[in-house]
Design a protein around this nucleic acid. Structure first.
Length: 815
RNA sequence: GCGAAAGUGGCGGAAUUGGCAGACGCGCUAGACUUAGGAUCUAGUAGGGCGACCUAUGGGGGUUCAAGUCCCCCCUUUCGCACCA
């Protein structure tokens, strides 16, 4: 008999499937469509085990859905713009383009060894291809024309190592580090392009149309950071102008003893009195110098300075001093607050330090009228608040906002933490921003017929902090499309997250000259399922939703959410339980594993290792179990059926069918729910059963042959190669992957008898096998209580209660 | 500091959602076959007790006939957010 040799069968079938284009997408098929998207990889050089973990289990699911009769679209490509290419280029002196495209060639070969059924042939998308980024640029122009892309000079987060600005989402953690290289970011004043994602802040909070994991919804909700409150205008003394503050507690306005504005607030210069100028300038200078990290540290003592000016309280008309303090952030709200020391912890600390009054305006329960020893930020009755006294503070909020509105000094307001998305990057390997700056005409979009704006080759791209494209005069100097005068191209490139914010539309037909006008596109959207890592919760996944809403508003797509269902797989760790990295030396190379064990084994093992959403450490030990599993299956199918005399009993046949159909059902359900680990264990249980049954007369029945076929069909999604080989060995027609999923018959899966669990006072005492499902509660109780192992326990005890759970257990309560 | 999730044998993990805890696999122990091997097969494997039994799902309390699962408190770990007014 042949031995199982993956090195022989895997390349063989991979070649045949490829030649036959076995998984070719038929867009005209009448089968229900199912768009199953996985996050596409960055072409970093070679596949690591994490790629396999991310792509092999979805492939199993895609194969299952196809067998179930769905027209599954399962595309992939490469997110191929981005910094690593440049960094590698600098390090090794190769062209970023060459590095990237060589990597993709290599990785495509590696991908092939996985035996995945991705639609690569006619649907692959590569974001650095001009044919692709032409549309990234075209979309930028649509955003520009619709007021969703704008340019602004502002202090931005700058990574000194990557030498580029970053979006807020790409700055991580309390130490404010670059998402890519972990370097601490600094602030820099730059003219930058932003996408107006804040326009959709409210709608992005609404997840009612999509089924996404709670975690992601929470992360996005917190990131958007909605807070309800009011804007209150304080008139500046001796001026007709106002300072607007945002507060969530308008009910505490009578407790405001100062206005505090951020050091960066332009009002500082305007309002500071002559005698305070020098001190204020010094403070502002210090504040600017202090890093973000220092300013963010919550434990840091509050500092600030009175700038000499006053505002007038909107109700009492009393003078309220205006201070600056760096605990007020320019980037949130209006960059100015009313300081209410009695009811805000930070304001309390500030007032204590600078001896500002701390009037109580919301009475804590049992308040004795004495000054508070700590800020009280809960609710309570309003006091010291003029006409609003004795209202509950919740009523007070409404009443005060109404009164302010009547005076035209305030209104209800909602504030978001979400900032607009900064997309300018001062790097080379990205899609050029398709804008021409003309002295006369301003910012002019590149006309459609001149797209794409090609990324020039042979540019000196060393990161200097300036955009490398600036150095290319050929690229930079152009004529204005409007006035034909001399003009300059924008020399920044786009954040690669722009490239990946719409790629799923391009998969359908990457070679067509049009994208969104293509009618055949519509029927695939929104995407049924999207699988990828949770690390993209507040970046890619939020940008993707924003893009879809914007595209919908522009009439380019007909849906407002891109992905109906999202699933996050976990992270695969090294054997030391640490994140895999070259420096730790714990990286697992899938190529070696495939060589040694074969793709089917690796795929299955990755599914078996634990819940997909949990991830976890790789262990090379457990893989032996899967190796044995497939070896045994191989021998089981190819070994001649033993000669067994006699006839199978009806029970044997029913048992066989029962476990078979139970397995069909469970494997299907678990695949649909991404519970790959129990798919594998269920199939192992079935196999263990079949291996034993092979020694019984059941092998003489036609049911046995059916069972073998069914078993191969069930493992086909997990192990595409070995199943194809064994399918052929069973004399079945090519290809196993074109077969229908076995039909589940609930009546065959149903039990006829059950094991009755007998408990006394909730403790297991006996199991009675083979109890009829049709037995009445009374009969079951009788059966239990009269059982020889149970009856003695009951003797001489007072019977309190007998609980009967139908088809399951009896619990006898005695005293 | 705030918020969320998780904690089950030596290990990875199951558990029809309140009803037999430990499926499946790794590892380990013993045996068989042996061309002596890190192959294969068979049996065993939560802990304790000679035993009938007892004890076990991070710890403590509670609800319930019945709790890994629900409620309260605590501990630990992981992950978000972090002066957001």
């Amino acid at each position: 008999m042949r031995k199982y040799n993956h090195r022989e069968i895997e390349p063989k079938w991979q070649e045949r499937w490829e030649n036959d284009d076995l998984y070719r997408l038929d867009p005209d098929s009448k089968q229900p469509k199912w768009y199953f998207l996985t996050m596409f990889p960055y072409p970093s050089g070679r596949l690591h085990i994490g790629h396999w973990f991310m792509y092999a289990p979805p492939d199993a699911k895609a194969r299952y859905l196809r067998m179930k009769g769905m027209n599954v679209f399962f595309p992939t490509g490469f997110d191929s713009f981005g910094l690593p290419a440049e960094n590698a280029a600098i390090k090794r002196g190769v062209d970023p383009k060459k590095w990237t495209y060589d990597n993709m060639d290599y990785m495509r070969k590696e991908f092939r060894t996985m035996g995945a059924s991705y639609h690569r042939k006619n649907h692959e998308v590569v974001t650095s291809d001009p044919e692709y980024y032409k549309w990234t640029q075209w979309l930028f122009i649509q955003f520009f024309n619709h007021g969703l892309a704008y340019r602004k000079k502002a202090p931005v987060d700058w990574c000194p190592k990557c030498n580029t600005s970053l979006a807020r989402e790409q700055v991580k953690g309390d130490e404010r580090r670059c998402d890519r290289c972990q370097t601490q970011v600094v602030k820099k004043d730059l003219d930058q392009w932003l996408f107006r994602i804040t326009k959709y802040a409210e709608e992005l909070l609404d997840f009612s149309q999509i089924q996404w994991p709670e975690r992601v919804r929470t992360l996005q909700t917190e990131w958007i950071g909605r807070s309800e409150g009011a804007e209150i205008k304080f008139q500046i003394e001796n001026s007709s102008e106002f300072i607007t503050v945002f507060t969530t507690r308008p009910d505490t306005v009578f407790g405001a003893t100062a206005l505090v504005i951020a050091p960066e607030n332009p009002l500082v210069e305007q309002l500071t009195t002559e005698d305070k100028k020098q001190a204020v300038q010094e403070y502002v200078f210090q504040a600017r110098r202090a890093s973000e990290i220092e300013r963010m540290a919550t434990t840091r003592e509050k500092t600030g300075l009175w700038i000499g000016a006053y505002a007038l309280h909107p109700f009492t008309k009393e003078r309220v001093p205006i201070w600056i303090a760096d605990y007020v952030l320019m980037g949130y709200g209006t960059g100015a607050i009313m300081s209410v020391p009695a009811h805000d912890e930070r304001d309390f600390a500030f007032a204590k330090k600078y001896d500002l009054p701390i009037p109580t305006v919301i009475a804590p329960p049992d308040w004795d009228g004495q000054p508070l020893s700590a800020a009280y930020s809960e609710s309570g009755k309003m006091v010291n608040s003029g006409q609003f006294n004795d209202l509950s503070n919740e009523e007070g909020k409404k009443a005060i906002v109404e009164a302010l509105a009547a005076m035209d000094q305030g209104k209800a307001a909602i504030n978001y933490r979400l900032r607009d998305w900064l997309i300018s990057r001062q790097r080379y390997w990205g899609a050029p921003i398709p804008i021409i700056h003309c002295q006369a005409c301003g910012m002019v979009p590149v006309p459609d017929d001149q797209l794409p704006v090609l990324l020039p080759d042979g540019v000196q791209f060393l990161p200097t902090g300036e955009s490398p494209l600036k150095l290319s005069t050929e690229f930079k100097n152009v004529t204005c499309p409007k006035c034909q005068g001399a003009a300059e191209r924008d020399t920044d490139t786009m954040d690669t997250f722009v490239d990946s914010s719409w790629y799923w539309y391009r998969y359908i037909n990457p070679n067509k000259p049009e994208v969104f006008m293509d009618k055949s596109l519509k029927q695939w959207f929104p995407i049924d399922e999207y699988a990828g890592g949770i690390e993209h919760a507040t970046m890619h996944l939020m940008y993707a939703r924003f893009f879809t809403k914007a595209l919908n508003d522009m009439g380019l797509v007909d849906h407002r959410e891109p992905f109906k269902r999202l699933f996050n797989q976990g992270l695969i760790l090294g054997e030391d339980n640490q994140k895999m990295s070259k420096s730790r030396g714990n990286v697992i190379d899938p190529d070696e594993l495939v060589q040694e064990y074969g793709a089917d084994t690796i795929r299955t093992y990755l599914m078996f290792i634990g819940p997909w959403e949990a991830g976890g450490p790789w262990s090379s030990k457990g893989i032996e179990g899967i190796v044995r599993f497939y070896k045994k299956i191989w021998n089981f199918i190819l070994d001649p059926t033993p000669t067994i005399n006699g006839e199978a009993t009806a029970t044997e046949i029913k048992d066989l069918q029962r476990i078979l159909h139970k397995t069909i059902n469970k494997v299907g359900n678990d695949l649909e729910n991404f519970q790959f680990n129990t798919v594998v264990s269920t199939l192992m249980e079935l196999f263990n059963y079949l291996a034993k049954a092979k020694e019984t007369a059941v092998v003489n029945t036609p049911h046995w042959q059916e069972a073998l076929k069914t078993f191969i069909l069930l493992i086909a999604p997990l192990a595409p190669h070995i199943s194809e080989e064994l399918w052929e060995a069973l004399g079945q027609p090519y290809s196993v992957h074109k077969q229908s999923w076995p039909k589940y018959d609930a009546s065959l899966a149903a039990n006829e008898v059950f094991t009755l669990v007998v408990q006394i006072n909730g403790k297991l005492r006996e199991r009675i096998e083979g109890v009829s499902l049709s037995a009445s509660d009374e009969e079951v109780k009788q059966l239990a209580m009269s059982h020889p192992n149970i009856a003695p326990h009951l003797a001489g005890k007072e019977l309190k209660n007998v609980i009967c759970v139908p088809k399951r257990l009896v619990n006898i309560v005695v005293k």
